[in-house]
Design a protein around this nucleic acid. Structure first.
Lengths: 214, 214
DNA sequence: AGAGTCGTTGAACGAACGTTCGAGAACTCC
DNA sequence: GGAGTTCTCGAACGTTCGTTCAACGACTCT
């Protein structure tokens, strides 16, 4: 059908096919627990054939992590472009994260779980995106904090607790019994916003301070 | 020095020495990423000498996970024995967890991160303790919930979000810049209690429901 | 039809893996 | 001091690992 295009179409599709099944296997067996022969088996590509698409097992993991994170990041920025209200921006952030989590559980698990399996040169590149993502979250929290942050909760602890709630999802979420992205987002946002904003928060913070004699 | 005792003392101490350094290596390199030769090197025990203390690499991981979890569980039950107030019980629960986390980061990381590295027969035994721990957390939340739970947040999501906040700590906590166990516990408890109890929570839950047209 | 990529492969490489084994220290008890 | 247990180790086992390489069919251009 195409005339001038050489034929990277076929090849690109096959790479995506490999990335998909490799991510699933990494998610199930872990990066170190998965052999190139395993990936060859689940993709149907011969062992040596894999090396036509990427130059090493490390690079394969990198491709999965980089593609995944880049997609999340770009979709998030697009969605945030039209939103100004601080609380809504937070909700968009959480929803974007949770939505991807539930629709691509394997890729997300590999991203969250195999962070350190990548060796320094490539690991740093993924870490760089991760830092931008974290900075964006801090920025969003800053907006929310203008409404009054609870005392006794360092902002860093607040943001990372939010990441904890979101990123732990892959350890327990069961599509058959647990809520979908919408409801899950509502729950996490509710806990976080109510937990972190002042008024009632001040009550418990001072209570526990009194209890421990601070 | 001892007279009647055969001499398991020496051996027991050495086993603990191996468990400690193995946990550190597993935490740094991952279970699959660590070889028995690595463990031999960091413990100073010869490769074959290790097999006098445990029968396989799997069993070594099991010993680390089982000992760690058992200690946490028993200390928690002892601490809860003297406490009746629901909110304080929750605080004791979180504090016990976080305290162990910060004082034994390697063991805790291995427990949280290498859950699936254990094969079914042994994995199930660790999972059994994990279930008892989770059930205890649910029980504690039930006590707190008597004070009125926020609508729109399933209890299961609440408990697992709490676990998320606590268990994610190993990914980011830096002893040099982050708060210690006391303050960290205060922060997480404050977010969770304020986030999950009714009154203000109902506000945000209904807000987000209205926003998404539910 | 012939040159030149693109995609694929089986076979093989050396290295590293978890585990075993038999021999021998070191120690306790009689 | 000799028997028996506890502890340690070097050497080796067979297997699996990530990666390479030369070769070959399929396809596009001229």
């Amino acid at each position: 059908m195409p005339t001038t295009v050489p034929s990277p179409r076929d090849s690109e599709a096959k790479l995506q096919h490999i990335l998909l099944h490799a991510a699933q296997t990494f998610a199930e067996e872990g990066f170190e627990g998965t052999s190139m022969r395993d990936i060859s088996r689940v993709t149907g590509v011969s062992l040596s054939g894999l090396y036509y698409y990427f130059e090493s097992k490390q690079k394969l993991l990198y491709l999965i992590q980089y593609n995944t994170f880049n997609f999340i990041m770009e979709r998030l920025q697009a969605r945030l472009d039209t939103v100004n209200d601080p609380a809504t921006r937070l909700r968009v952030f959480v929803q974007n994260h949770i939505e991807y989590f539930l629709s691509h559980p394997s890729e997300m698990k590999v991203l969250a779980h195999e962070e350190e399996a990548l060796d320094p040169p490539l690991r740093d590149e993924v870490a760089a995106i991760k830092r931008r993502y974290y900075a964006l979250a801090c920025e969003i929290l800053d907006g929310v904090a203008a409404e009054g942050l609870a005392p006794g909760i360092p902002p860093r602890v607040a943001v990372l607790s939010l990441f904890g709630m979101m990123n732990w999802v892959y350890k327990w979420h069961n599509p058959e019994i647990d809520p979908g992205a919408e409801e899950l987002t509502n729950g996490i946002v509710a806990i976080f916003l109510n937990g972190v904003l002042e008024e009632k928060a001040a009550l418990y913070a001072s209570e526990s301070r009194a209890r421990t004699g601070d």
